[in-house]
Design a protein around this nucleic acid. Structure first.
Length: 390
DNA sequence: AATACCTACAACCGCCTTTCG
DNA sequence: TCGAAAGGCGGTTGTAGGTAT
């Protein structure tokens, strides 16, 4: 079964970089005859090459409509956007960038864009704030629970607070996604990944924490509020790319609102939520280990992202419905959302406190299972520390 | 100057899908 | 309908050039 490898029967076939002479032969032959059968082409063109190699050389480098040179900012943004939507479907992405080949885009992604996103704190796989930054939380909690030295506690708590912020971002993402979906302009607008805003938020918090402004959640909220949410309008609904926090329709409504909780309780609740399996959720692209000594209830997997392929995009996009005509209307849409049914009239995007209050309400009404997990290290941590000052 | 290391990118490999007799 | 051939795709490797030690 299975095909024999290309050119296997000819062990003498040349490999490696193409010479100008070979390029000339290939271009001249295809110019006169077309490529026809790639397998027969090498003999006919006088090349000692595999047909597959000839095809690759032609499609990636010798084709007359190939666009050479560096990528423009627009192209970069488009690639990032398309990658967020399509994933590593390089050929599909290449169809949206005139003159660029899938191989070129793939290489550019791996050598430039991927690193660029990482440096911005964005996971290049999920296009969301990096969760690997949170991976140490379970160990921190466990260490704290197991009686870490008192002088180590501040560091642990700093980390926990950071995780708490990240969890809040997750919640806010859903909120922002709703807002963006109502304020977004038609897809013809300049496309920027929604991650930029989240990056600035996360960056602000990281900066605050590293500057020693720890434990001042209010201050961090002010930083969050300093982000002009009205900018969301230019993001072309990219928050649709963000999966909802959870699809777990929680039936318990006994949890106090986040805003009414003490900071310690809030942090611990959130910390417990983002520990364990959540961090290793395949949806987050994380295969990281869970804390082995924790018994956190498994987090319900987020709903699958519904990434329509090109065909689906074309058929699903209402004709004349404001699509850019370049396929950019193809977006990921979560199958369901914790935030579905949210009354947008209740939200003033300029009122950050109101947004937090809305977040609280959503948590109370649709609290995910991971937020109410019990018998885990963080709860033990709470009970151990709920009488101490932070 | 020599060596190690890093980076970018061209090319290859293996698998899957499509085409065709 | 089936199987082989061909095409296509994404991941990986090889290599050349640049930089740091």
């Amino acid at each position: 079964m299975g095909r024999s490898p290309c050119c296997e029967q000819d062990a003498d076939v040349k490999k490696g970089p193409w010479t100008p002479e070979e390029d000339k032969l290939l271009v001249e032959y295809i110019g006169k005859n077309g490529h026809g059968s790639w397998r027969r082409l090498p003999k006919l063109a006088g090349l000692n090459r595999c047909g597959k190699s000839c095809r690759l050389r032609w499609t990636n480098y010798l084709r007359p409509d190939i666009k050479r040179g560096g990528f423009s900012d627009d192209e970069e943004r488009l690639i990032i956007h398309l990658h967020a939507t399509l994933g590593n479907k390089w050929s599909s992405i290449a169809t949206k960038l005139k003159g660029r080949t899938d191989n070129e885009i793939k290489n550019y992604w791996n050598t430039h864009l991927r690193k660029k996103l990482l440096s911005q704190g964005i996971d290049p796989v999920t296009h969301r704030p990096r969760t690997d930054l949170l991976a140490g939380l379970p160990n921190l909690l466990a260490a704290a629970n197991l009686g870490g030295a008192a002088h180590q506690l501040p560091l642990d708590l700093n980390a926990i607070k950071l995780q708490a912020d990240a969890a809040k971002f997750q919640i806010l993402q859903g909120l922002l996604r709703v807002l963006a979906s109502t304020t977004a302009p038609p897809p013809t607008a300049a496309v920027l990944p929604g991650t930029e805003l989240m990056t600035s938020i996360l960056g602000a918090t990281l900066a605050a924490n590293s500057a020693g402004i720890l434990g001042q959640q209010q201050q961090q909220q002010q930083q969050l509020a300093s982000v002009d949410l009205s900018r969301l309008g230019q993001y072309n609904g990219n928050y649709d790319n963000l999966p909802p926090l959870t699809n777990d329709s929680c039936t318990q409504q006994t949890q106090p609102a986040m805003s009414s909780m003490s900071p310690d309780s809030l942090l611990n609740r959130i910390s417990s939520g983002i520990s364990g399996d959540m961090l290793s959720s395949p949806e987050l692209g994380q295969g990281g280990p869970s804390a082995s000594n924790m018994t956190t209830s498994p987090m319900a997997a987020p709903p699958p992202m519904v990434a329509a392929d090109d065909h689906q995009c074309n058929t699903n996009t209402p004709s004349g419905g404001g699509g850019g005509g370049d396929g950019m209307s193809c977006e990921q849409t979560p199958a369901s959302s914790t935030f579905d049914g949210l009354n947008l009239d209740d939200i003033d995007i300029n009122d950050m406190e109101g947004c937090w209050a809305m977040t609280d309400m959503l948590l109370a009404e649709q609290c995910p299972s991971w937020l109410i997990s019990s018998n885990n290290a963080s709860e033990m941590y709470i009970s151990k520390n709920n009488t101490s000052e932070m």
